Amino acid sequence: MPRIAYVNGRYERHADAAVHIEDRGYQFADGVYEVCEIARGYIIDMTRHLDRLGRSLGELRIEWPMHRKALEIVMREVVRRNAVRDGLVYVQVTRGVAPRDHYFPARPIPPALVVTAKKTNPEISRKRAETGVGVITVPENRWERVDIKTVGLLPNVLARQQAREAGAVEAWFVDADGTVKEGASTNAWIVTPEGKLVTRPADFGILRGVTRATVLDIAAKMGLEVEERAFSVEEALTAREAFITAASTVVMPVVSIDGRPVANGHPGSVALSLRQSFFDVAEKSPAC
């Protein structure tokens, strides 16, 4: 069965789907996106993802491409047409198509919308969590508004490629003072020797991760103490555990940083417990 994409009002074969060459997302990265996990036939945390989409659109002064409820219907239809039970659904909204000019278009134009879905194998992620992953550190070189989930991801792309070439899975951006900001596509966490969860405050310095928010809910239910503060690379290396969170990874233990082991170099019990509890606590919306 061929993959199907939704592009500006039409469901099309994924292989044939296209956007205009003067779409401002292509020309200027003038757009935003969201990615939701699909697990066991449910779209996970859809409300929080669409809330964040609305915030990102507002920060860039882009209108919703359609009513929010209509977008939910489109997302479910794309998931249904692609028969995805476990995977990801991707939503991208740009300012639209207009003659190339740095200024916003002088006359109103409709925002452009693309929705796609793809299958993933949850067994691959489960096995990866059993062994944990490595991260590398890279200097922070992004603009200051990383709290907006824009499609302008070139620094993130280069960082992830650097991680792959180093045999790692993720790259953590590090400020000049040595504190960890976040991963190229994840939020960063540690567990202190005293058992406290630490993650950077979700202000303008990091993306306000949806999975991060759900993990905070799980931690509260588990009675875990959380400190929202910066932590250094050295503190992470001496921590009891480290892990990353994102819709594409859920909770993933980190067992090495720049090739140096975290604790005993094996996944920790806190990260694995958070991962195991995630589906039970996260919001679940029927995917079809």
Rank of each mutant, 00 (worst) to 15 (best):
V7R: 02
G9D: 12
E12K: 00
D16V: 09
D23F: 05
G25H: 01
F28E: 01
I38Q: 02
I44T: 04
D45I: 04
R52W: 08
S56C: 07
W64Q: 11
M66T: 15
V74D: 00
A83E: 09
R85M: 08
D86R: 00
V89Y: 00
V89C: 03
V91M: 13
V91Y: 07
Q92T: 14
T94C: 06
R95F: 10
A98Q: 01
R100I: 15
P110Y: 05
A112K: 01
V114C: 11
V115W: 00
T116C: 10
N121L: 11
R126M: 09
R126C: 03
K127E: 12
T131S: 12
G134K: 05
G134N: 11
V138S: 09
V146G: 09
D147S: 12
I148C: 07
I148M: 09
N156P: 03
V157G: 09
L158E: 08
Q161C: 02
Q162W: 09
Q162S: 14
R164T: 13
E165V: 05
E165F: 08
E170H: 03
V174T: 10
V174N: 04
T179I: 09
S185P: 00
T186P: 07
T186E: 12
A188K: 12
V198C: 11
F204S: 10
F204K: 08
I206W: 03
I206V: 15
I206N: 00
L207D: 08
R212T: 11
A213H: 10
D217L: 09
M222P: 04
G223F: 07
L224A: 02
E227T: 07
E227K: 12
E228P: 02
F231I: 11
A236V: 10
A236C: 05
A239I: 12
A246P: 01
A247L: 13
T249I: 06
V250I: 15
M252V: 13
V254E: 05
V255T: 13
D258F: 05
V262S: 07
N264L: 07
L274A: 08
F278N: 00
D280A: 15
D280I: 04
